[in-house]
Design a protein around this nucleic acid. Sequence first.
RNA 1: GCGCCUGUAGCUCAGCUGGAUAGAGCAACGGACUUCUAAUCCGUAGGUCACAGGUUCGAAUCCUGUCAGGCGUACCA
Length: 554
Amino acid sequence: MNHVIEQLVLSALHKAKNNGDLEIAEEPEIVIEKPKDPKLGDFSTNLAMTLARPERKNPRVIAEVICKYLKNGGGQVERVEMAGPGFINLKMTQSFFISRLLKVAESGDDFGCSTVGKGQKVLVEYVSANPTGPLHVGHGRGAAVGNTLCNILKKAGFDIKSEYYVNDVGNQMNILGRSTWLRYQEILHKTVEFPKDHYQGDYIKDIAQEIIDRHGEEYLKKSEDEALPFFRQYAAQWVLEGIKTDLKEFRVEFDGWFSEKTLYEDDSVDNALGWLREKGFVYEKDGAVWLKSSAFQDEKDRVIVKQNGDQTYFCSDIAYHQNKVNRGFESLVDLFGADHHGYVPRMQAVMQALGYDRDVFKALLVQFVSLKRGEEKVSMSTRSGEFVTLKEVVDEVGVDATRYFFLSKSSDSHLDFDLELAKKETPENPVFYIQYAHARICNVFLKAQNQGIAVPGVAEVDLTPLVEEEEFALIKNILAFPEMIEKSAQTKEVHRISHYLHDLVAKFHSYYNKHRVVTENQPLTLARLFLLHCLQITIRNGLTVMGISAPEKM
RNA sequence: GCGCCUGUAGCUCAGCUGGAUAGAGCAACGGACUUCUAAUCCGUAGGUCACAGGUUCGAAUCCUGUCAGGCGUACCA
C-alpha cells in the first residue's frame, strides 16, 4: 500500500519539477510512514526535510509546493497538509481503502505474498545440532526462528529450501558410541570407568537398554574395537530419530537432511581441497594444512587438516557449502548460535576462495537462551547431561506458546527463559491474546449464521457503511500486512510478525468492545462481517507463518 | 588485548537505514459482564532511552570514548 503512496508523491514531485517549482537534481528516496497521531492523517513523508539541503530552501516552503501538487491526486486523496517542521500529511478517501480491502478477501491464504524475492533460490540451513543428544531449549529457539524465516521468505517470493546438516562423523560420534558401549556393560553388571568427558545424560542408558532388549548380551563377549562400530551407528541413529520426532512435534520440517559423512564418501571434501590447492589458497605449516583465509578478510588463516591427518569440521564445511552452490542455490543462509559468530567471516572467506561473491553466504545469529527456574540458573551442556530438552518444555507449555515466546523477541538479543514463569504465565501468555481474537471472530460468524446471515462475497458486498474511526484503523492495519512481511524478509527479523499481530489484534479487541457486529442494521452487519473476514484472514496468515495454530474456539 | 551481541518503565521486551508527545505486555491501582466468548475492554500511575562528548534544523536511533553483562578469540564441533 505504501508503494501506491510513493508513486503518488513521486508524480507530484515530477510535476513540480516540470513547472520549475523545484530543481530535483537527483531523484530522492521517498519514505512513507504513518503519523504518530492518526488525527494528522493516514500517511506522512519527511520528503520536504530531506530535500531542504539539495534544494537550499526551507523545508516548510518545499512542503507547501509538494502539497499543492498532491492536492489533485486522482480523487484518492481527501486531504493533504503540511505540519510541524515540514512533514507532509495525507489523508486518503474511504474508497481508497475499501477497494484495497476487497483484494484482501480475494487473495485469501495468499494475502501477504509478494514477489520481492524474485524467485531467488535460497538454502536456509538451521538447527544442525550434533546428533549426540536430544535437542535442548536453545536449539528450539533456532528451530522456531529458522522455520519461521523460511515461511516469511517463501511468502516474500523467494524460492526456499531448508536443510539440516547432520555432523555424523568425527570424534563426538566415537564418544557417543563409546558412552553407549560403557553403559551397556554397566547395565549388564560389568564394572567400567565412565569418563567425565563422555555423555552423561540418561538417554544414553535408554539406548543401551534398548540394545540389550533387542540384542541381549552378545556384545559383551566382543572387544571394544569390534563392538564400537555397532554402538556408534546404533546410538547415532537413535538420537537422530529422536531429533526428527521432536522437531516434527515442534512443527519444524526440513526439505533435506544432509549427512556430513557423504561428503567424505563421494570425495567432495578431497575435491574441494584439491580445488583450493590448485588456486594456491592452501599451504602446509607445522605439519598441518591451512586455508589462506586471511587473504579474504578473515583475521587469520585456519587449519583444515590437522597434524594427525584428520580433517577439521571446518574442512567438510567448505565442501558442504560448495555443494550447496553447486546445487544451484544463489544465496546461502545459515542460522548460527551466537557462540559461532566467529565463523561468519571464515565462511565468507571460503565463498571468496571458492570463487563466489562473499555475500552469497549470509549468517543469521541467534543469541543464547539462558534457562532459569525462578532465580536459579540451569546449565545447558549436552555433555553434563543436565540440560532441559525442547521436548520437556513443549510438553509443559505447548508448541504454540513456546514458539511464540521464541519468535516474539529479536533474535540478536539474549533470551531469558524462565521455566517457572513460562509455566505460570501460560494462561496470560500474549499468544492467547492473538488466538482469542481469532476465536472471537469465528464466534461472531457463528452468531450471524444462526440468524441466517452469511459473510458476504467480494462481488456483492457494500462497504460504504463502514465509517467508524476504529474500522479504518483496522483496515489500515490489515493492509500493512504485506509490507510487514516484506520488511521482515529483507531484514530477516522474525519478531516483527508477533508484534504486528499483537498490535492488530489489540485494535480488534478494542473495536469489539465498542461496536457490535451483528445488529438489526443489515447493511452495516454485512459490511462489518466482511471486515472481520479480512481480519481473520490476516490473523490466520500471520499465525501460520509463525507456525502457531489459529483456533476457532477457546 | 581484539572481535561480535546486548544495556530503554519494577520485570520481560518493541522502537534503531535520524523526525512530530519514547511504546507494548506482565506486575500495581480504579472502573466495565441481563449484550457477538471478561483469556476482553476503558482509565491511573510508572522514563536522566547505561554514562560522557560529537555530527545538525532535529539523536533512543549515526560517530568517538567510557562503564556493565553475555559470547568468541582451538590443529573442539
